[in-house]
């Protein structure tokens, strides 16, 4: 079971969180004409990386904040966590 450093609450066990997928995906702006391909890339297409992955988690049984977690998908090592509005270098 992972041990995740919520930037708002501190170290918390994984059971308090729910997974939210790839954090690098950006929703297209509203009212913008976009191609089928761009929309598909947003809705469906994911890289499914092995290794370092920036992903979203929500601290549902805690502060309910969505956070970003930089995690290794193969080893589960967590390198860093960020608040939703923090820029990730």
């Amino acid at each position: 079971m992972l041990y995740i450093n919520c930037p708002h609450c501190g170290m918390r066990p994984q059971i308090e969180f729910s997974y939210g997928g790839d954090a690098s995906v950006k929703r297209p702006e509203l009212n913008k004409e976009i191609s089928d391909q761009e929309w598909d890339d947003f809705v469906y297409n994911r890289k499914s990386l092995r290794g370092k992955h920036l992903e979203l988690w929500q601290h549902i049984s805690g502060c309910r904040q969505w956070i970003k977690v930089e995690r290794d998908t193969a080893t589960h090592e967590i390198f860093n966590t960020f608040k939703a509005d923090e820029e990730v270098a």
Binding site: S18, G20, R27, Q58, I60, Q65, W66, A84
Partner: peptide, 17 residues
Amino acid sequence: AANVLSHLEYYLQLVWP
């Protein structure tokens, strides 16, 4: 009920802060 709340929070916190 729970999913809709998370859904709203997702858009408010991440997409349209």
